[in-house]
Amino acid sequence: MHLTVWNVPESCSEQDVREFFERELGHYAKGVTVYDAGTSNAHADLELDSDVPYVADAVARELQGRRLAGVALRVSAAPFDEEESPRG
């Protein structure tokens, strides 16, 4: 399960972002990948350690609007991972 987080502040380093999400997600944080850290396009991919589809939606709702360095985050969950696609 993956979440995408936009609106990551330019002032945050890759390590800052990683530590923030590992702290916020606890045992659900399987992996955090940060793209374009230090730029206005900074965003992150969060891999969740769960096979239950609704967990990603619940975590996305919980993180939505949380603040990182004073900036409200925007979070979304992919509706299905490829292997979980109802067409597959």
Rank of each mutant, 00 (worst) to 15 (best):
S13H: 03
Q15T: 15
D36S: 11
R74K: 15
L48A: 07
S13F: 05
A60P: 14
A69K: 07
V75W: 05
R66E: 07
V34Y: 06
A77F: 10
T4Y: 12
Q64L: 02
G70Y: 06
P53G: 02
R23L: 13
Y35S: 08
R66A: 04
P79S: 09
E19L: 15
E19W: 10
M1Q: 08
T4E: 14
M1A: 14
E22I: 01
E83M: 07
V8D: 04
E10F: 00
G65D: 10
D81E: 15
A42W: 03
P86G: 11
E62F: 09
Y28Q: 05
N7H: 08
V52D: 12
G31L: 03
V59K: 10
S50E: 02
G38P: 14
G65I: 11
A78F: 08
R74A: 10
Q64W: 03
V75Y: 09
H43N: 13
R67H: 05
E47N: 00
D49L: 13
A37H: 07
C12W: 01
H43S: 14
S76R: 15
V5H: 10
L73M: 13
E24C: 09
S13T: 15
D16A: 09
V17L: 06
E22D: 12
E14I: 02
E84L: 11
T33I: 06
E84K: 12
V34W: 06
G65L: 03
M1E: 01
E83F: 08
D16G: 05
Y54K: 08
A78Y: 13
D16M: 03
P53W: 09
R18E: 12
D45K: 09
V8Q: 01
G65V: 08
Y28V: 00
P86S: 10
A60S: 15
D45R: 10
S11A: 14
K30A: 11
S11C: 09
W6T: 11
P79L: 07
L73T: 03
D16Y: 07
A58S: 14
G70A: 12
S76T: 13
V32H: 05
T4N: 09
G70M: 08
L63V: 07
R18I: 13
G70N: 12
E14C: 05
A29I: 02
D81G: 12
Y35M: 15
P9N: 12
D57F: 11
L46I: 06
L68Y: 01
